[in-house]
């Protein structure tokens, strides 16, 4: 049995950026936002297209980031201005994004990145003359560190407090003078920009963008969030963010392990993802029923 440790770590970190985005909308903002499904592909499509027409990889990635923010803003507009429920707002954007994504890729369902196309990873490898694999790991680690540091700072600012309170007790923070429509909008933009950012990184890592690559984003992101909470349970500001990334890494190792042991094709990954998430979500219940089956000895006697 052999699991590629560095490779799996890298994938966990790269997808971890997406999981942090999902964490912001689902957990911090308490907004069941499905925009992520389309937004991940959007990031990949925008970055791949720009790279193939010769833009610098960093600029392409930043453009993907901005595109994600715009998608989040659209969902925010549906919800705060048109009063459409969260779930439906996200679905509207997600569905519409399919067409936008195809258009961003020049009416094609995928864009391969050729050997002579630069990516952030290949640039990094060349700059420090290291192997591609180590470069991927370094880029992933740097990106995740920057994201966590900026978010840690942001969630400790006045607006950051207001955003956290919006997901926690909307009436209360409105009574304290915060326009929660603004904080929701900002949170959706922030979360989705990170999802698109992650999509851009994955496209460069995989050397292609594909119209179907965003399918399952929510499940993968939530699996990372829940596993982070279950394994490293701490919902406090920056520790919560790190827990999500660790959750994402753990999740990748589980998938790698299952694929390795079962010799299933990689197309089964999403099926396994769903099962892993279902188990993670059911864990509190499973734990409770295990405890109930084994009551303390004294109690048992009383019942008998």
């Amino acid at each position: 049995m052999s699991i590629d440790i560095i490779g799996t770590l890298s994938i966990g970190l790269l997808w971890g950026v997406m999981a942090v985005g999902v964490y912001i909308t689902f957990r911090i903002l308490d907004f069941a936002d499905l925009t992520a499904e389309g937004c991940f592909t959007l990031g990949a499509a925008v970055a791949a297209r720009l790279i193939t027409v010769g833009a610098s990889p960093i600029a392409s990635t930043l453009a993907a980031f901005a595109a994600g923010a715009a998608a989040g803003a659209l969902t925010g507009f549906f919800h705060t201005k048109l009063r459409i429920p969260p779930l439906l707002s996200g679905i509207l954007t997600m569905t519409g994004l399919y067409s936008i994504n195809i258009r961003s890729m020049g009416m094609k369902p995928n864009i391969p990145l050729m050997y002579d196309n630069r990516t952030i990873m290949s640039d990094f490898a060349k700059m420090f003359s290291i192997s591609n694999k180590i470069a991927v790991f370094c880029v992933a680690l740097i990106c995740v560190s920057i994201v966590i540091f900026i978010l840690w700072w942001f969630f400790n600012t006045e607006i950051g407090y207001a955003m956290r309170a919006t997901g926690n007790n909307e009436n209360m923070i409105r009574a304290l003078g915060v326009n929660t429509n603004v904080t929701k909008m900002l949170g959706l933009m922030l979360g989705n920009s990170l999802v698109a950012f992650s999509g851009a990184l994955i496209a460069q890592f995989n050397s292609y963008s594909d119209i179907g690559m965003g399918i399952g984003t929510i499940v993968i992101g939530l699996a990372a969030v829940i596993m982070g909470e279950v394994i490293f349970s701490d919902k406090n500001s920056y520790k919560g963010l790190i827990a999500v990334v660790l959750g994402s890494i753990s999740y990748r190792f589980i998938i790698a392990l299952v694929l390795e042991l079962s010799r299933l094709p990689t197309t089964d990954t999403r099926g396994i993802s769903s099962i892993v998430l279902a188990i993670a979500l059911a864990l509190p219940l499973i734990r409770k029923s295990l405890i109930r089956k084994k009551p303390p000895a004294s109690l048992e006697r009383e019942v008998a």
Binding site: E158, Y161, A162, R164, N168, N169, N171, I173
Partner: peptide
């Protein structure tokens, strides 16, 4: 209803201390 339950006592008080004031990117 009165507090944000997953935030700390000092964070809640800090938000109340900014009641009705514009919020920016200064420390919370």
């Amino acid at each position: 209803m009165g507090t944000a339950s997953s935030m700390t006592i000092e964070e809640n008080l800090a938000m109340a201390h900014r009641r009705g004031k514009p919020r920016g990117l200064g420390w919370g």
